[in-house]
Design a protein around this nucleic acid. Structure first.
Length: 883
RNA sequence: GGACUGUUAGCUCAGUUGGUUUAGAGCAUUACUUUGACAGAGUAGGGGCCACUGGUUCGAGUCCAGUACAGUCCACCA
């Protein structure tokens, strides 16, 4: 069988993914095995794959595939989120492009368009996950607006309402004037902004011509002013307390009140109070029973109440009113003022604090167990630093505004009658029943359902259990088997939006945490450290990259640059590293396949001979065990990039660079030792299994090239056995290190002396461990092109000396050689050793050290000293041969 | 403004309770190697006062304090 020059990822990847699907390897059913459950953080239904998804889902796939190979019943549930604001915005945009205004169509018409949109674009992101190789159980694909899911959301609302945890109230909320909806606090992003501070003077009512000056960044809101407030102890304004002033331009008479809230140092010490448009002003207004004048419409234009600029946008008004205030003589001065302004997370417009009637969840009622679970490590956070963040938020939790003025989503199950009563029920007929309990003659037509939808997160907080119908069909076999899930992999950005609320919902409705552990990924940034975003255009086209480099390479690239718990500065060049790695593995396969074409020879050795003949095998066997133990550690701590690096070097360095070279049959030889061949293939199998979670496609491909496999023998479901170190391993590994150091040192010496690779040498070894050379001698000789190896007690004249660790080698060559550079090298080494010796001697000469340090430490230092002295002696001896 | 995290080679990061060499890895870089798996490669190098300043200690990249810078989260005094 002829193998292509490189790994052909395009054909292999689609072929194997389809094969895995055909074999139902990702489909999970409850059975006697230990479950390993992961519920995907559902991407927006209309979203497309970006680097954040790539990182997040690669990590999940690694965990899930590894669990599957460890014999667990792995179940990774896919799905999407209806993403109310984001999707509705897209549909509104689409309609506008078709010349349809949302306001011109009915709710039902709009929803028809929205569902069409969802059907058309909804599956895209899931298809993209398949391209990445994600081993999701597609039969379980969920959507937050599936029937059972919808009913559960409504059910939860009803339940919380009946417990008194949900209420309706008029409060200050964050208003998105573009989406025309309320936002939760978490949906507001504060950005540093260079603003202007305007100093405005208000004429005093009793003293014409006299003024009080206030400072504001929002002059347009003065039209809604209902008071001016000063600090009660402020001497400058004491005489004005209880007096009145006129709002400029409209001359409304407002009181001057006193409250300790006002800072005497800031601005002029006098604060204008606009209860309708500022959170703090609202509270002051409540306290002092001030009038509330709302001067803005829901789209951000000035309302009738403003009297002036009616219908003009708020920012346009700001420009105009400043001009007018200046003209009227009320503008004293303006100052540059840097402050932070809230923007909508979804639409990126400046958020308007606004008083409105919304639905709220009283979070303190349900946060208790959720806080404890994380603080007690019942749910483990990785990295643990997020525990503090979580705790702080939970301890200071505020009520959650859950109503959104949108149509796409779960409609709030509340009905209102003409009298202003509210009936919360699961459906209209239940609501009618409630209504009739109060008004027996009531008719269906008297009731009107709330127009609003619920916040998206009010549905996604049920995700870990409702994907198994844990709420809608309690106690079913799936929920009993799969819940709680094992690992949640998500971005720290949504720790409050989602993670915290899932924990609360889990305890409230399943009486159990939703997941055992949470792994917070870093944020994917570009090379300059900027967050990847659409607007910056620094987000690469993932599918194009997969086509070009292969999914394995892209997965490799993102994982290798992803330190546990840190943001990752991702650069496209890591794709190349991944592709080169694939190529390297592919070529190793080609080499092994070439050997296979030779004549197999079965050789029997005595135990002692075998130790020597098969040293490479014994060594790699030990290395595998060692690395597997390291990997277990890394996985346990979610150090996935470290684990990948470990596998990478094991394959590239240990297997390709060392092992394969050690066992490679000499050129021209037509036979192959059968035991070596079989062992090599076995190692290759194991290596592919270790790598499979990271690079599923190429590993499956190689696995099948290595040996003819029975039907159903695929690496995807192969067992990955863990291994413990054995007693003999330490000695073998030490010999391996000695062999490597010797080869490197001697090659270096050959290079420096400009000995051609083909020129053979006689190698003399001066060593404290002669026995080792019994075992490693043959390989050493071949790797450094030595015709023979001799042990020696003394220096060898006319030979090139080389020092490696405690060993000294003498390379005797038949051709005359230039020793100059070699001598220089040895002098450098000598200089280093003398410096080192000095530092050790200094340490040992320090009485306090010898007195206070632990005995072992002192012994180590003594040994260092002896070693250094010995090496110096050896180099000095070697140098004499160069003279 | 408050809290947390970080600052180690050109870049990205390891460095476990202070002591096994005068600090490691990957990528990048340099020199050499070119028909026998792989030039998308091989072999061998170079490259760091561990941010700064003090302190604790026989001993500090590692512990403590302060300073500077960066990042994240929270708060919002108009």
């Amino acid at each position: 069988m002829a193998l292509s020059k490189n790994f052909e990822h395009v054909s292999a990847e689609s072929k194997w993914y389809q094969h895995w699907l055909d074999k139902q390897y990702f489909a999970s059913k409850p059975d006697g095995r230990e479950p390993y459950t992961v519920a995907i953080p559902p991407p927006n239904v209309t979203g497309v794959l970006h680097m954040g998804h790539c990182l997040n889902n690669t990590i999940q796939d690694i965990l899930v595939r590894r669990a599957r190979m460890q014999g667990k019943n792995a179940c990774w549930v896919p799905g999407t989120d209806h993403a109310s604001i984001a999707t509705e915005a897209k549909v509104v945009h689409m309609l506008r492009e078709r010349g349809i205004a949302k306001s011109s169509i009915s709710r039902d018409e709009f929803l028809t368009y929205a569902w069409e949109w969802k059907e058309k674009y909804g599956g895209i992101i899931l298809q993209q996950l398949k391209k990445m190789g994600c081993s999701l159980d597609w039969d379980r694909t969920s959507f937050t607006m599936d029937d059972h899911y919808y009913q559960s959301v409504i059910g939860v609302f009803n339940d919380l309402y009946s417990k008194g945890y949900i209420y309706r109230g008029k409060r200050m909320i964050n208003w998105d004037v573009k989406a025309k909806t309320a936002l939760s606090d978490e949906e507001v992003i504060f950005k540093d902004t260079q603003s202007k501070l305007y100093f405005l003077r208000y004429e005093l009512a009793d003293s014409p011509g006299q003024h009080i000056t206030i400072a504001t960044v929002r002059p347009e809101t003065i039209l809604g002013d209902t008071a001016i407030c000063v600090h009660p102890d402020d001497e400058r304004f004491k005489h004005l307390q209880g007096k009145f002033a006129y709002v400029p331009l409209i001359n409304r008479k407002i009181p001057i009140i006193a409250d300790e809230y006002v800072s005497m140092e800031f601005g002029t010490g006098a604060l204008k109070i606009t209860p309708a448009h500022d959170m703090n002003d609202y509270q002051l207004g409540q306290k002092h029973q001030l009038e509330v004048i709302d001067v803005l419409n829901d789209d951000g234009t000035m309302s009738e109440a403003a009297q002036l600029y009616v219908g003009v946008d708020r920012f346009e008004t700001r420009k105009k009113i400043v001009v007018d205030l200046e003209a009227s003589g009320n503008l004293v001065k303006t100052e540059e003022y840097p402050n932070q302004v809230g923007y909508s997370e979804r639409t990126d417009v400046v958020v308007e604090p606004r008083l409105s009637l919304q639905w709220w969840v009283d979070m303190k009622k349900i946060s208790g167990p959720a806080l404890d679970a994380v603080v007690n490590d019942d749910i483990k956070f990785h990295p643990a630093k997020f525990k503090n963040l979580y705790r702080h938020w939970m301890e200071n939790i505020k009520d959650w505004c859950i109503s959104r003025q949108l149509w796409w989503g779960h409609r709030i199950p509340a009905w209102y009658d003409q009298q202003g009563n509210v009936f919360v029920a699961r459906n209209e007929s239940d609501a009618l029943t409630l209504y009739r309990q109060k008004y027996p003659e009531g008719k269906k037509e008297d009731l009107r359902q709330d127009e609003d939808c619920l916040d998206t997160w009010f549905s996604s907080w049920l995700w870990p259990f409702e994907v198994f119908k844990g709420y809608s069909n309690p106690g079913n076999p799936d929920i009993k088997y799969y819940y709680p899930t094992q690992t949640l992999v998500t971005a720290p950005e949504i720790i409050f939006f989602w993670v915290a609320r899932m924990v609360m919902a889990g305890f409230e409705y399943m009486n159990e945490k939703p997941f055992e552990q949470v792994y917070f990924t870093g944020i994917v940034r570009d090379k300059q450290g900027r967050k990847m975003s659409k607007s910056l255009g620094n987000s690469p086209d993932l599918l194009e990259m997969i086509d070009r480099f292969g999914a394995d390479a892209v997965r490799f690239g993102i994982m290798i640059s992803s330190p546990a718990g840190n943001d990752l500065l991702w650069d496209e060049s890591t794709n190349e590293q991944g592709r080169n790695f694939s190529n390297k593995i592919w070529n190793a396969l080609k080499l092994v396949k070439m050997w296979e074409e030779r004549k197999p020879v079965t050789t029997t050795y005595s135990t002692q001979q075998a130790e020597k003949a098969y040293f490479a095998i014994h060594w790699f066997d030990a290395r595998l065990r060692q690395v597997k133990a390291e990997l277990d550690q890394s996985y346990e701590q979610f150090r996935l990039s470290e684990a990948l690096m470990t596998v990478y070097t094991l394959i590239w360095d240990d297997f390709c660079s060392w092992y394969l070279e050690w066992v490679k049959p000499p050129y021209g030889e037509e036979t192959i030792d059968e035991k070596v061949l079989n062992a090599t293939k076995g190692f290759f199998d194991e290596l592919m299994k270790l790598l499979h979670p990271y690079m599923p496609f190429i590993t499956e491909e190689i696995y099948h090239h290595l040996s003819a496999r029975a039907e159903g023998d695929d690496i995807c479901i192969a067992r990955l056995e863990s291994a413990a170190m054995q007693d003999a391993d330490a000695g073998i590994l030490a010999n391996g290190k000695l062999l490597q150091a010797s080869i490197t040192g001697i090659r270096d010496a050959r290079n420096k002396a400009q000995l051609k690779p083909k020129e053979s040498i006689v190698l003399y070894v001066q060593t404290e461990a002669p026995a080792a050379y019994e075992v490693i001698g043959d390989i050493l000789a071949r790797q450094v092109n030595a015709s023979s190896i001799e042990l020696t007690d003394s220096t060898i004249a006319q030979a090139i000396p080389a020092v490696a660790g405690k060993e000294t080698f003498y390379l005797l060559s038949s051709t005359p050689i230039d020793m100059g550079s070699q001598k220089e090298e040895l002098m450098k080494e000598l200089e280093y050793l003398r410096g080192f010796l000095l530092s050790v001697e200094k340490k040992l000469g320090n009485e306090k050290f010898v007195q206070n340090a632990k005995a072992e430490v002192v012994d180590i230092e003594k040994k260092k000293k002896a070693d250094a002295e010995m090496k110096i002696r050896m180099i000095e001896e070697s140098l004499t041969t160069l003279n």
